[in-house]
């Protein structure tokens, strides 16, 4: 069985440190009004951005579990 250093630590680091950059980006975009949540189109884009983050998180989690248990 591969160690924690090869399985979940990279996953946590990727979405933890990467997540900090991602959330900072969202905060900057919303605070500066570049992503204006009063606009229908921009609300849609916010959903796309959050979906993208969760989508890649799911891909990595799924393949880690598949490698270990399938």
């Amino acid at each position: 069985m591969p160690s924690f250093y090869h399985t979940w630590l990279p996953f946590i680091y990727l979405y933890g440190v990467g997540g900090v950059f991602f959330v900072l980006g969202l905060i900057f975009a919303i605070k500066s009004n570049a992503l204006n949540l009063k606009k229908k189109k921009h609300k849609y884009w916010l959903r796309v951005l959050i979906f993208g983050y969760l989508y890649f998180m799911f891909i990595h989690a799924f393949f880690t579990i598949a490698a270990l248990y399938w």
């Binding site: 990727l14 991602f22 570049a34 992503l35 884009w45 993208g52 891909i59 990595h60």
Partner: peptide, 24 residues
């Protein structure tokens, strides 16, 4: 092995900065 894919799956973190900052 499959970890060769990781560089293709780590570009999303900067998308808010890119889509609503640098691109416009």
């Amino acid at each position: 092995g499959f970890s060769s894919t990781m560089t293709y799956l780590n570009d999303w973190f900067f998308m808010p900065f890119f889509l609503f900052g640098w691109l416009p």
